[in-house]
Write a protein that binds this DNA or RNA. Structure first.
Length: 479
RNA sequence: UCCUCCUUAGCUCAGUCGGUUAGAGCAUCUGACUGUUAAUCAGAGGGUCGUUGGUUCAAGUCCAACAGGGGGAGCCA
C-alpha cells in the first residue's frame, strides 16, 4: 500500500485509526514525560505532530530522531491536547530511515537567509518557504496546460537544439560534440562545423516562437512550454541563463485578440493559485510582512500578497500605446524635475525607471503597452499603416517589469523580407519560416510569458533565483 | 558587462583611533524543567577574520589585486 501523505491525512482525518506517516523531522522538543516531533513530507506546508511517551520507544531510536532525519512514525490519530493543531499522532513505532548529524546538517530550526539557502539548493526544498514556492510553481504549470486545453490550444514541442539564431537576439549556448582543443578546420582555417554532430552550427533555443508559428499555421492555436536558454551576461534578480517560457501562437488573432488572451491568461493563472494554494500563499504573505517590517514604509509592498493577487484578478489591465506612454512620461513630475536617469523621447526604448513609473505610480495596475517604434522591435512584428510603429505589446507588472512580450506577426511576404534584409538576417537560415508567408499566409499573433517571472509575482519573492529549483546564472551552475 | 556595497563561529551580525587574550544572538552539545509549538532556564564547546600580496614596531581594522555574494543598471522573458 502506498503511504498516505500528510495532506491526505489532514484532509480526511480518521480519528482513532492507526496510521503511518513518512517524512522528515522539522523539530523535536524533549522532556522527561513526553516528546513532540514535527514531521513534514512536502505534500503540504502543514506538519503533523507526533507525540512520543519516552518509555514506549527505545532511547537509541529517539536519539536518531533529529532535525532533518527521514522517518516513518506509526500511531493512532487523535484530537490534539495542544492548541497549535487539530490532530496529532500518538506514536507507537518509529523507523529512522536516515538520521542527519546536527553538527553538520545546515538546516537547523532557525531563520536562514535566502542567500545562504541558495548555496544549499539541494536542501532548501525542505524549508517551508521553498516548499511553498515549489508547490505553487507546480500548480501554475498545471494551470497553464489546463487553461490552453480548455480553449482548444495544442501543446507543441518545439526543438531545444536549433540551427538558427533567427531572432538575432542575444548570445546563445553552442551545442557541439567537436573537441574544443583540437577542432577540425576548413580550407580557411576556421572551425569546420560540417564535421560537427549535426553537420552545422547548432545552439540551444532562445525562443520556440518561429517554430511555434509553423504549428499555428496548421493547428490554429498552439502553445509551447519548455526550457529556454540565453547566454547573456545578465546579473539581475529577473534574469536566468536557463528559464522556462510559455509561448502561445494563434492563427487569425490580431493584436487586440492577443491582448485579450494575455490578460485572461494571467488572471486565470493567478486565480488558480489563489484557489488552490491558499495555505502556501498565506505563509508567503506572512513571511513577506515579517521580512519587510524592518524596511521603511516606501520600500514595503503597498499591498499584502493576497490583496495584490486579488487586485490583478479583479481589475482589467490598463492599455495604451507607446506614443501615449511617452506623452504621459514627458508630462510626469519626475521628468520635469529631471529625476529620470534616462531622458524620455519618442523612438527610444523605455527604461526600467519609466516602466516602473507607469505601472507603480501613474496607473498602479498591470499595463499593456502597444505599438512600439519598429526600430526597437523584432523583424517579425506586423508593420502598421503609419510606417513608424509595429503591432507589438508588452505586459508590465508591478515589481516585475516586463512579464509578457508579444505581437501580431507580419504576414505579408514582401514586407517581411524587407525587414529581414534591413536587419541583416540571411534568408537561408530561415527559409522555412519565410515559406509560411508564401503558402497560405494568414494574420496571426502570439506572445511569450516568462514562467519564473510569473512565479515571482505570485509568490511575492524578490529574486528569480529563488523561484526555480536549481538556478543557472553567469558563473553559477551548481547542483 | 558597468556602478555600488559586502565577505569575522554552522547561520545572522558587532568589533571604537591600527595595539596585547576576537564578541553577541540563534543553532549544536550537556543538564534541569515543562502537553510542547522555531518551547523555556542554566552551563559548555565552537574562529587560519574570503585568498594572495603590500604598508607598519604592530593589521580583523589601512592599501592593491583576485575570488565569491548582495543591491542597482543594461540586455530581456
Amino acid at each position: 500500500m502506498t503511504p498516505k501523505t500528510i495532506a491526505t491525512i489532514l484532509k480526511d482525518a480518521q480519528i482513532g485509526k492507526e496510521i503511518t506517516i513518512k517524512g522528515w523531522v522539522r523539530t523535536k522538543r524533549d522532556s522527561k514525560n513526553v516528546i513532540f516531533i514535527n514531521i513534514n513530507d512536502g505534500s503540504t506546508i502543514k506538519n503533523i505532530q507526533a507525540v512520543v511517551v519516552p518509555t514506549d520507544i527505545e532511547e537509541s531510536i529517539i536519539h536518531q530522531v533529529v532535525t532533518g532525519a527521514g522517518v516513518a512514525i506509526t500511531g493512532i490519530l487523535t484530537p490534539s491536547q495542544g492548541s497549535g493543531q487539530d490532530v496529532e499522532l500518538l506514536a507507537s513505532h518509529i523507523i529512522v530511515y536516515g538520521t542527519a548529524d546536527p553538527e553538520k546538517y545546515p538546516l537547523q530550526p532557525k531563520k536562514h537567509s535566502l542567500e545562504f539557502l541558495r548555496e544549499i539548493a539541494h536542501l532548501r526544498p525542505r524549508t517551508n518557504t521553498f516548499g511553498a514556492i515549489l508547490r505553487i510553481r507546480h500548480a501554475l504549470a498545471y494551470a497553464i496546460h489546463q487553461f490552453f486545453n480548455e480553449r482548444g490550444f495544442f501543446y507543441l514541442h518545439t526543438p531545444i537544439i536549433t540551427g538558427s539564431d533567427a531572432e538575432g537576439a542575444g548570445e546563445m549556448f553552442r551545442v557541439t560534440t567537436l573537441d574544443p582543443k583540437n577542432p577540425p578546420l576548413n580550407d580557411k582555417g576556421a572551425v569546420d562545423y560540417k564535421e560537427d554532430f549535426f553537420g552545422r552550427e547548432t545552439n540551444l533555443t532562445v525562443s520556440g516562437q518561429l517554430e511555434g508559428e509553423l504549428g499555428a499555421m496548421a493547428l490554429g492555436k498552439i502553445y509551447t512550454f519548455g526550457p529556454t536558454f540565453r547566454a547573456e551576461n545578465s546579473n539581475t534578480a529577473r534574469h536566468l541563463a536557463e528559464f522556462w517560457m510559455i509561448e502561445p501562437e494563434m492563427a487569425f488573432y490580431e493584436l487586440e485578440d492577443n491582448m485579450d488572451l494575455a490578460e485572461e491568461f494571467l488572471q486565470y493563472l493567478v486565480k488558480y493559485a489563489l484557489d488552490n494554494c491558499s495555505d502556501d500563499i498565506a505563509f508567503l504573505e506572512k513571511r513577506l510582512l515579517d521580512e519587510e517590517k524592518s524596511l521603511k514604509k516606501e520600500e514595503q509592498s503597498p499591498l499584502p500578497l493576497r490583496e495584490k493577487l486579488h487586485f490583478v484578478v479583479n481589475n482589467s489591465f490598463k492599455r495604451l500605446t507607446y506614443t501615449e506612454a511617452i506623452k504621459i512620461l514627458e508630462n510626469s513630475k519626475p521628468n520635469k524635475k529631471g529625476q529620470f536617469k534616462y531622458p524620455v523621447s519618442w523612438g527610444t526604448d523605455l527604461q526600467s525607471e519609466h516602466e516602473r513609473y507607469l505601472v507603480e505610480k501613474e496607473f498602479n495596475a498591470p499595463v499593456i503597452l502597444t505599438d512600439y517604434p519598429r526600430e526597437i522591435k523584432s523583424f517579425y512584428m506586423k508593420q502598421s499603416e503609419d510606417g513608424k510603429t509595429v503591432r507589438a505589446m508588452d505586459v508590465l507588472f508591478p515589481g516585475i517589469g516586463e512579464i509578457i512580450g508579444g505581437s501580431q506577426r507580419e504576414e505579408d511576404y514582401d514586407k517581411l523580407i524587407k525587414r529581414v534584409d534591413e536587419v541583416g538576417i540571411d534568408h537561408e537560415t530561415i527559409w522555412w519560416y519565410l515559406e509560411t508567408r508564401k503558402f497560405g499566409t494568414v494574420p496571426h499573433s502570439g506572445f511569450g510569458l516568462g514562467f519564473e517571472r510569473l512565479v515571482l509575482f505570485v509568490t511575492g519573492m524578490k529574486n528569480i533565483r529563488d523561484v526555480i529549483p536549481f538556478p543557472r546564472t553567469p558563473k553559477s551552475a551548481n547542483f
